[in-house]
Design a protein around this nucleic acid. Structure first.
Length: 656
RNA sequence: GCUGCCGUAGCUCAGUGGUAGAGCGCGUCAUUGGUAAUGACGAGGUCGGGAGUUCAAUCCUCCCCGGCAGCACCA
C-alpha cells in the first residue's frame, strides 16, 4: 500500500475513522482524546494485541486497551518479568537471562546463575524493580538481523538467548525490546513504558526449573512473582492465597482426623475412621452409578507374574514406575543378602488393572452379542512415583481407581464414549463441580497403530464430546502411545489442576494380549478397549473434594453428620435417647455428654466441621425437642426431635 | 529424580555453644454452665538420624532421611 494512503479504522463501538496508513495506536488514541491517550497501553488490531507504536498499514478493527482493562493484566505481568530481569542483571552481573512469560496471576523469569537466589535476594530484587519502574523508560521495539543478534548475545555471554534465536524459524523476525539501557529478545507486545507496570507486584518464591522443560538439560533458577493493576487487587490475591492455605486437604485431613501419611509408607494413605467413611460413601455412590449404567464389577490380583506385564507392554514402557517383587523365600540368616542368586520368577504389584481385565475377558469365547462388556474394578494399584511428585492425597503411590474397561466393537466406540461423558457429567454435578475442564490428548510422535486408525479414534472422541455438549481443548502430541485420551481436570484450593476422570481409547492392548470376539461373520475380531475412570482415583478426588468444600462436606459425605451435645448433666439420658434415634435413622451421630460448657462444645464441633449439632438441655428433654444448630449459621431452631431427625435423614440421602 | 528452603512436645511455634519453653490439645480435680474457648493442677521432648569440631552441640560443619515449593513425570 502506498505511503500516505488513507485507511479506515473501525472502533469497537462501530465508529469508522479515516487515518493515513502507518498510523499508530497511540496516534489514534490522541486523535480521540487526551485522557484516552494517557490511559491507553496497547491496541488490539484485528483481534491481536500490539504495541501502541506499531504502524497500522491497512483497514483494521482497532480497540484501544487501557491499563484498567482486564486485558492489561497479561501485559503488566509480562512487562514485570522484563523489569525483574533488568533488576537481576543489574544486581547480579553475570546472570544469564532465558525466558520470562506472564502466567495466571503473575509472571516468572528463569535465570542461569551458579549461586542460588535467597529469599533476602528477593526483597532486594523487588526494591530494584521499583526503581526500574520509577525510571519509566519507554519500551522500544527493534528488528535485528539474525546473525548479528546471535553474535551480540553470544559476545555478551547470553548463551541461552543465542540458542533461542538460533531455534527461531527463518521466517520469524528477530524482535528486540529495549527499556532504557537494558534490552531483551522478545516477541512482545509491551506497554509504552516500564512505569506502566505500576506498584502492585510482589516476588513470591524461587524454585528450580529445567531449561526448556527438559530434565536432561541445565537446571535454571526461576523467580515467581505476582502483579496486578491496583494495590487492592494485589492485596486481595495475597489474602486469597492465605485463605487457600487453610483449605489445604493435608491440613484439613489432620485437623478433621481423616487420614495421615507417614515415612514408612510414603505416598500411601492411612485412612482414619472418619476419612474412610468419606471414602466408602464415594465408592458406594460410584458403584450404584456404574451398576445402573450397565457395568459389571470384578476384582483382580494385586501381584502378577512379570510374564503378563511383558506381554501387555508395561514391562517395557512402564517398568520404572512398577514395584517388582521376587517370588522367592527371603534369606532368614542374620548375615548375607535378603535374596540370593538370580531370580527364577519376578512378580509385580499391578500399576494398572487393564491386563487383568483382559484376562477375564479372555475366559471362554465372546460373541459380538456379548459386547459391549463394561468391566469395573475399584482396583488398588501401586506406582513407584518419584519422591518429588508425591503430594498428600493428590499424588500417591498406592491408589484406588474407579476404573473400568469397556470392550466393544469399533462401531460402538462413539456411543460408548457419549454414554461415558454423560455419566461423568452427572457424577461431577452431584459432587458439586459445575465447570468441566476437558482436554483431548492427541497422537504422540511415538505411537502404535496407523494414522488412519488414529484419525478415526480422535474423531470418535470429538464426536462424543460434541454429542455430550462438552467444550474441550486440544493437547497435540499428549496422547498415550496406544490411543488418544480425554482428560477431565479439576482445580485444587490454590489453583493447581489435577487430572481426575479420563477416557482412553486403546487399539494396542487387545492385540498384544490376544483378546478377540466372534463377529456376525463367524470370524475372530479384535475388540476395542476403552480405559475409563470418572473420579480417577478415590484418593485424589477426595483430596479435591475436601479442598473444594473447605472441609465442610455435604451431609451425605460428612463423616459425622450430627452431634448431640448436652448443656447439663441432667439431660444426659434424654441425649442418649436422641443419639439412639439418630442411629436408628441411619445417621452418623456422636454423643457429647462431656462435662464441658455448651459454648465449648459448640465451638469444638463447629471447628471440626460437623454439619449439625443437636443441643439438648432440661427444656428440650421435657418437651422432646432439640435445638438444631447448623454449621455456618448462628441461628438455632427448637423443633420436635422426630421432625428434626426426619428432615436431617432426608437431607443426608446420597444424590444417587 | 532435580533445584531451593525447612525439620524443637500430638498441633502451631519461640529459644540458647553449658542437654529446653509458650499456647492449644491430653490427664486429674473443682465447676451443672443455654449456642464458637470455665478455672486450677499435672503429665509429656535423648530438639529428624549419624559422624565431625569443641572441655561441652538442639545450636557450628559434613553426610543421610523426611517435609514443603517449583521443575520433570503423571490419575
Amino acid at each position: 500500500m502506498a505511503k500516505g494512503q488513507e485507511i479506515t479504522i473501525t472502533l469497537p463501538d462501530g465508529a469508522q475513522r479515516a487515518y493515513t496508513a502507518g498510523v499508530t495506536g497511540m496516534e489514534i488514541a490522541e486523535s480521540i482524546s487526551k485522557s484516552l491517550a494517557k490511559a491507553v497501553i496497547a491496541a488490539r488490531v484485528n483481534g491481536e494485541i500490539c504495541d501502541l507504536s506499531l504502524p497500522i498499514e491497512q483497514d483494521s478493527a482497532v480497540a484501544l486497551i487501557k491499563r484498567e482493562d482486564e486485558a492489561a493484566l497479561e501485559m503488566i505481568r509480562h512487562d514485570a518479568a522484563h523489569v525483574m530481569a533488568e533488576a537481576v542483571q543489574k544486581l547480579f552481573p553475570g546472570t544469564q537471562v532465558t525466558i520470562g512469560p506472564s502466567i495466571e496471576n503473575g509472571f516468572y523469569y528463569d535465570f542461569a546463575r551458579n549461586e542460588p537466589f535467597s529469599s533476602e535476594d528477593l526483597a532486594v530484587i523487588e526494591k530494584e524493580m521499583r526503581k526500574v519502574v520509577e525510571r519509566g523508560a519507554p519500551f522500544t521495539r527493534e528488528v535485528w538481523n539474525r546473525d548479528e543478534a546471535i553474535k551480540y548475545f553470544t559476545d555478551k555471554g547470553e548463551m541461552y538467548k543465542a540458542e533461542l534465536i538460533k531455534d527461531l524459524p527463518e521466517s520469524e523476525e528477530i524482535k528486540i525490546y529495549r527499556q532504557g539501557e537494558w534490552l531483551d529478545l522478545c516477541r512482545g507486545p509491551h506497554m509504552p513504558t516500564t512505569r506502566h507496570v505500576g506498584t502492585a507486584f510482589k516476588l513470591l518464591k524461587v524454585a528450580g526449573a529445567y531449561w526448556r522443560g527438559d530434565s536432561n538439560r541445565a537446571m535454571l533458577t526461576r523467580i515467581y512473582g505476582t502483579a496486578w493493576r491496583t494495590d487492592k487487587e494485589l492485596q486481595d490475591y495475597l489474602t486469597q492465597l492465605e485463605e487457600a492455605e487453610k483449605r489445604d486437604h493435608r491440613r484439613l485431613g489432620r485437623e478433621m482426623d481423616l487420614f495421615h501419611i507417614q515415612e514408612e509408607a510414603q505416598g500411601s494413605v492411612f485412612w482414619h475412621p472418619k476419612g474412610f467413611t468419606i471414602y466408602n460413601q464415594m465408592e458406594n455412590y460410584i458403584r450404584r452409578r456404574l451398576k445402573s449404567a450397565g457395568y459389571v464389577e470384578v476384582k483382580t490380583p494385586q501381584l502378577i507374574d512379570n510374564k503378563l506385564w511383558q506381554a501387555s507392554g508395561h514391562w517395557g514402557k512402564f517398568r520404572e514406575n512398577m514395584f517388582v517383587v521376587p517370588d522367592e523365600v527371603p534369606n532368614t540368616e542374620e548375615e548375607g543378602p535378603i535374596f540370593k542368586g538370580k531370580f527364577e520368577r519376578l512378580m509385580a504389584l499391578k500399576p494398572m488393572n487393564c491386563p487383568a481385565h483382559v484376562q477375564i475377558f479372555k475366559q471362554g469365547i465372546k460373541s459380538y452379542r456379548d459386547l459391549p462388556i463394561r468391566m469395573a474394578e475399584f482396583g488398588c494399584c501401586h506406582r513407584n512415583e518419584a519422591h518429588g511428585a508425591l503430594h498428600g492425597l493428590m499424588r500417591v503411590r498406592q491408589m484406588t481407581q474407579d476404573d473400568a474397561h469397556i470392550f466393544c466393537t469399533p462401531e460402538q466406540i462413539t456411543q460408548e464414549s457419549i454414554a461415558f461423558c454423560e455419566l461423568l457429567q452427572k457424577v461431577y454435578k452431584d459432587m458439586g463441580f459445575d465447570g468441566l475442564n476437558v482436554k483431548l490428548a492427541l497422537r504422540p510422535e511415538n505411537k502404535a497403530g496407523t494414522d488412519e486408525i488414529w484419525d478415526k479414534a480422535e474423531q470418535g472422541l470429538r464426536d462424543a464430546l460434541d454429542a455430550a455438549g462438552v467444550a474441550y481443548e486440544d493437547l497435540p502430541g499428549e496422547g498415550a502411545f496406544y490411543g488418544p485420551k480425554l482428560e477431565f481436570h479439576l482445580k485444587d484450593a490454590i489453583g493447581r489442576t489435577w487430572q481426575c476422570g479420563t477416557l482412553q481409547l486403546d487399539f494396542v492392548l487387545p492385540e498384544r494380549l490376544d483378546a478377540s470376539y466372534i463377529g456376525p461373520d463367524g470370524n475372530r475380531h479384535r475388540p476395542v478397549m476403552l480405559h475409563r475412570a470418572i473420579l480417577g482415583t478415590l484418593e485424589r478426588f477426595i483430596g479435591i473434594m475436601i479442598e473444594n468444600y473447605a472441609g465442610k462436606l455435604p451431609l451425605w459425605l460428612a463423616p459425622v453428620q450430627c452431634v448431640v451435645a448436652t448443656i447439663t448433666g441432667s439431660a444426659d439420658s434424654y441425649a442418649q435417647d436422641v443419639y439412639e434415634m439418630l442411629q436408628k435413622a441411619g445417621l452418623r451421630a456422636e454423643l457429647d455428654i462431656r462435662n464441658e460448657k455448651i459454648n465449648y462444645k459448640v465451638r469444638e464441633h463447629s471447628v471440626a466441621k460437623v454439619p449439625a449439632i443437636f443441643v439438648v438441655g432440661e427444656r428440650e428433654g421435657k418437651d422432646r425437642t432439640v435445638a438444631v444448630r447448623r454449621l455456618g449459621s448462628q441461628d438455632q431452631s427448637v423443633i420436635p426431635v422426630a421432625e428434626a431427625i426426619q428432615s436431617l435423614a432426608e437431607e443426608a440421602k446420597a444424590p444417587y
